[in-house]
C-alpha cells in the first residue's frame, strides 16, 4: 500500500506558501501581508514584489508585526503575518494571545523554518514548540501541511477560514505526497494507506517518513495505516477514533517536542474514545544542533527507520 507513493522531492512548504499568497493577492485586493525582515526566507517577497502597497515591512520587530496584522485584520483585511516559527510565536506570543486569540481577530499567522530541519542555523532559529504554543491559543486553527500541494491548498483555504489560523511551514524541500487533484478540508485528516496492525499518525515532513516506514514494515508482513493530520486543531476525532478502534495501536511522529505537540493532543482523543497502545516519536526534551538538515534529522531520529523502530516497539506492546 505505502509503496504506491513515489515521494519524489518537491518544493519546500514555505515556497508553496509564498506562491499561494500571490494567487490570493491577485484574486482579492483585500489580502495584505506583513513580514519582519525575513521575506526572502519566508517567500512573502513574492507577494511584496507583486503588491508593494499591500506588503508591510515591519523590520525585525515581530511583536509589533503581529499587532499591526491584528489591526489590519480588525479593519476587514485578509491579513497574513509571517516569520520563522521560532520568532513569530515566541516573540509575538503575547500579541497573538491578546490582540488575536482573545480579541477574536481572524489573523493568519505563518511560521516557516519550523522543526529542526532548518539545519545549519541551529537551535536559536529552530522551532520545536510552535505546535504547543499555537494550540494553546483559544480559538486558533492550527495547520501543518506535509507537502507543497497541501500547503498551497490549505493557505488558500485558511485565508477565508473563520477565526485565527496558524500554519506551520518548513525550510527544506520535501517529498510530494499528493497529486494535483487532492482535496483538503481544514479539520479533516487524510488516510493515505489502509492498514490493520497499527496506524501512523503524523504531520508535516514526518508524514513522508511514516509512508516510507510503512513500506518497510509491509515487507516484514506488517500492515500499517498512515494518516496525515494536516490540521492539528481542531483535531479530527473521527479519523483518530476509527484508527484506534480498527488497528489498536497508534504511533505518532512529529518534528516537535514530543511532550507538548501533536502526540499529547492525540492521546487525549484516544483516551476519550478507544484507548489503545500508543507510542510517541518526536524531539525528546532537548534542543538540536547545527548541521546539514538531513544530518540533523538523522541524529535526532526523525527518519523513516527510526519511526519504524518505534512502530515495532509499539507492536510488541500490542502483542503483549
Amino acid at each position: 500500500m505505502a509503496a504506491k507513493y513515489e515521494l519524489k522531492l518537491g518544493a519546500a512548504t514555505r515556497e508553496a506558501f509564498g506562491k499561494a499568497l500571490v494567487e490570493l493577492g491577485k484574486a482579492d485586493e483585500n489580502v495584505v501581508v506583513c513580514d519582519a525582515d525575513l521575506s526572502k526566507s519566508t517567500f512573502t517577497h513574492l507577494f511584496g514584489k507583486e503588491f508593494p502597497n499591500r506588503f508591510f515591512s515591519c523590520g525585525i520587530a515581530e511583536a509589533n508585526m503581529v499587532s499591526i496584522g491584528a489591526g489590519l485584520a480588525s479593519s476587514g483585511k485578509v491579513a497574513f503575518v509571517a516569520s520563522f516559527s521560532a520568532f513569530v510565536l515566541n516573540k509575538g506570543f503575547e500579541q497573538l494571545r491578546v490582540n488575536v486569540a482573545y480579541s477574536g481577530v481572524p489573523l493568519k499567522v505563518v511560521g516557516t523554518h519550523s522543526g529542526i530541519s532548518i539545519g545549519e542555523d541551529g537551535p536559536s532559529q529552530m522551532s520545536v514548540e510552535d505546535i504547543s504554543l499555537a494550540c494553546s491559543l483559544a480559538g486558533f486553527t492550527v495547520i501543518s501541511p506535509a507537502d507543497e500541494v497541501a500547503m498551497f491548498s490549505l493557505v488558500k483555504q485558511a485565508a477565508y477560514h473563520p477565526g485565527a489560523v496558524f500554519i506551520r511551514a518548513g525550510r527544506v524541500k520535501v517529498p510530494v505526497i499528493y497529486g494535483p487533484e487532492q482535496k483538503f478540508e481544514i479539520g479533516k485528516g487524510i488516510q493515505l494507506t489502509e492498514g490493520t496492525d497499527l496506524t501512523f499518525i503524523s504531520t508535516g515532513l514526518m508524514v513522508a517518513e511514516c509512508l516510507k516506514a510503512a513500506a518497510a514494515l509491509e515487507a516484514e508482513g506488517i500492515s500499517a495505516r498512515v494518516i496525515d493530520l494536516h490540521t492539528i486543531k481542531p483535531i479530527d476525532r473521527e479519523i483518530i477514533a476509527k484508527a484506534a478502534a480498527e488497528t489498536g495501536c497508534i504511533v505518532v511522529a512529529e518534528e516537535h517536542l514530543v511532550d507538548s505537540g501533536l502526540g499529547v493532543r492525540l492521546a487525549q482523543v484516544v483516551a476519550e474514545t478507544h484507548p489503545c497502545v500508543m507510542e510517541f516519536h518526536g524531539i525528546n526534551n532537548t534542543y538540536a544542533e547545527s548541521g546539514l538538515p538531513e544530518e540533523v534529522l538523522e541524529k535526532y531520529k526523525m527518519t523513516a527507520a527510526d519511526v519504524a523502530d518505534t512502530a515495532r516497539k509499539a507492536l510488541a506492546r500490542k502483542k503483549g
Binding site: 509589533n64 499587532s67 499591526i68 489590519l72 480588525s74 483585511k77 491578546v98
Partner: peptide, 25 residues
C-alpha cells in the same frame, strides 16, 4: 470597542494596523 486591552504596550501597534488599513482604503 475597537480593541480588548489590559496587557500594556500592545495598543499602539494595533492602532497602526488600523491606520494602515484606512490608508489602503
Amino acid at each position: 470597542l475597537e480593541a480588548s486591552t489590559g496587557s500594556l504596550g500592545v495598543g499602539l501597534s494595533l492602532g497602526l494596523g488600523m491606520a494602515e488599513a484606512a490608508k489602503l482604503d
